[in-house]
């Protein structure tokens, strides 16, 4: 340093340092990205994101559970009584107000992801105070539309994207 006899303008020298440092940081960032990105779902997982379910054998009042993206999906064939129960409630009473009609495609069929919105446990069918589901982990009660009624869960059970193919088949995803 004591022998510093550099006479060039400091601005130009500063520029080349800044440029190099900036480029270096950009390059380092770009090479970190693949390492981060590899932890995301890979393309074979993404491609598997739809399933087809035959629902012709589900009886009224019963429910089947199918696996979709590694999670349980409840497919419930609701009785008249259950549908009425889900509809005869004022939205004002709900912690997460959603109309039952908007949560189903056909009134009879309720399709929800069976993961409690609190911390990810699987709620139990037919338990709880509202005739729907009850989560054993922290005591969330869901009604016959899969809506949260009581307990710590913040939102209703998620309705996945699905569609009917004919009378007795649905495609989820």
């Amino acid at each position: 340093m004591d022998k510093n006899n550099n006479n060039s303008k400091p601005t130009r020298r500063d520029f080349i340092y800044t440029l190099t440092a900036t480029l270096g940081v950009l390059g380092a960032g770009a090479s970190v990205w693949p390492i981060v990105s590899q932890m995301n779902p890979d393309s074979s997982v993404k491609a598997l994101s739809t399933i087809e379910v035959d629902i012709s054998k589900v009886e009224e009042g019963k429910e089947i559970t199918v696996m979709w993206r590694g999670k349980p999906v409840f497919i419930k064939r609701r009785t008249e009584d259950e549908i009425t129960k889900a509809r005869n409630i004022s939205l004002k009473e709900l912690p997460h107000p959603e109309n039952d009609k908007k949560r189903v495609i056909k009134d009879e069929w309720l399709v929800v992801v069976g993961i409690c919105t609190h911390l990810g446990c699987v709620p139990i069918n037919g338990k709880g105070e509202y005739g729907g589901w009850f989560c054993p982990c922290h005591g969330s009660h869901y009604d016959t539309s899969g809506r949260i009624r009581k307990g710590p869960a913040p939102t209703n059970l998620e309705v996945p994207k699905y569609k009917f193919v004919g009378e007795d088949k649905i495609i989820i995803g």
Binding site: M1, N4, N6, L23
Partner: peptide
Amino acid sequence: YLLILTILGFIIKKKIWLRI
């Protein structure tokens, strides 16, 4: 990218070593 960075690095190295 690496070519540019290497050239820049070489210029900087030259500048620094000019001090001695």
